[in-house]
Design a protein around this nucleic acid. Structure first.
Length: 350
DNA sequence: TTCCGGTCGA
DNA sequence: TCGACCGGAA
């Protein structure tokens, strides 16, 4: 039996009963699809009921004030969805005299409707043969067919769309689309998939090769970490105190000045209250030297503020790598860019 | 704390 | 091509 036949047969036994599945009205399907973008069914369900009751037609939607729409949307998140729906409803009134479109090419032009949603509405409302590719589809196809192309890459999107297009049932495209997404949502789940009950367990490449947890492959977007470094210039006649970066962090073993790091930007007053500051510098008052310096790395943004502390202060709990060195030796030490960026400014006290 | 997820616009 | 947009679940 074909891939699509197996799924449709599975769906006949296991479909979730959801209110928007009782209709082919593209307006109602549109409401449900936009609400379900980025949103779990359980969370979206009560919102769907509210929208259907409060705004039963696209004309009602277009005529409602935006404030009213947003109030109904409250708590659902991604509020641009609601604003785009309002624009789309007005466009449907204006461009289609209130007849909600059912073809992919018309739907994709409306605000808030991308390729997934256009395929979903077109296949559900008019059985247009358009394969949906959403998070569920990426998961099911990558596992069953053992495809480890990054789904966030252009090549991956193309490859999965082509595979989905080749698998869709030409006879029952809407049913097939519902089936593969329900299957992904309830059996081929992201975590703890129900492989024991899976209709594809004997042909699933990921199951056979132990790669369930590795697929679909998504190259992690290295999210930018923001860090706030506070450096202290401590002089003792012709000497200055330096420090060495620890292992296991950026710039390991390079030289810099004694510093403390905070998770957020802080004022001088807050710095004086900081536990690490008090540990080393007690009640001494740091004087900011110029503006903060921003250093951008691929994976972190570092905001560095330099401060002057009184000359020859008594440092408590001095770290072993904090050492006074002669100023003329400073040049010879290996330092990271942030440090010589600062030294290039005129803020270093001579 | 990390993961998950469609569309838009820069 | 990639970050912003949001809230909930694991």
């Amino acid at each position: 039996m074909s891939f699509s036949s197996k799924l449709i047969q599975w769906y006949a036994q296991n479909a979730r009963e959801l209110p928007w599945r009782q209709t082919s009205d593209p307006y109602i399907i549109w409401l449900s699809e936009i609400i379900l973008q980025q949103t779990r069914v359980e969370q979206g369900l009560p919102y769907f009921q509210t929208f259907v009751t409060q705004l039963p037609t696209v004309s009602d939607f277009a005529d409602a004030p935006e404030d009213f729409i947003l109030r109904l949307w409250q708590g659902l998140g991604y509020y641009s969805r609601a604003r785009n729906m309002h624009k789309a409803a007005k466009a449907v009134m204006h461009d289609y005299s209130g007849r909600f479109p059912t073809s992919y090419h018309e739907l994709i032009q409306l605000p808030g409707i991308g390729s997934y949603t256009a395929s979903a509405i077109a296949s559900f409302s008019s059985n247009e043969v358009r394969a949906v590719v959403d998070g569920n589809v990426y998961r099911v196809l990558s596992r069953v067919f053992g495809i480890d192309t990054d789904i966030n890459s252009g090549a991956g999107k193309k490859q999965f769309q082509e595979l989905a297009d080749s698998l869709i049932s030409e006879k029952e495209p809407g049913l097939y689309n519902q089936a593969i997404m329900d299957f992904g949502a309830t059996v081929c789940k992201p975590k703890q998939p129900l492989c024991a009950n899976c209709i594809f367990v004997h042909e699933c490449d990921a199951f056979a090769t132990g790669r369930i947890a590795l697929l679909p492959k998504k190259i992690k977007k290295t999210k930018i970490r923001k860090r706030y470094f506070h450096y202290f210039i401590i002089r003792r006649s012709a000497e200055v105190m330096i420090a060495k970066r620890p292992d296991g962090d950026i710039w390991a073993n390079l030289h810099e000045f004694p510093m403390i790091e905070t998770a957020a930007p802080i004022s001088v007053t807050e710095l004086q209250e900081n536990a690490a500051f008090k540990t080393h510098f007690a009640q001494n008052i740091p004087i900011p030297l110029g503006d903060s310096i921003k250093q951008i790395l691929s994976h972190q943004h570092i905001y560095a503020q330099f401060y002057l502390l009184p000359e020859d202060i008594d440092i408590k709990n001095k770290k072993t790598d904090w050492q006074y060195i002669l100023l003329e030796k400073l040049d010879t030490l290996a330092k990271h860019k942030l440090i010589f960026s600062f030294l290039r400014t005129d803020n270093f006290p001579q």
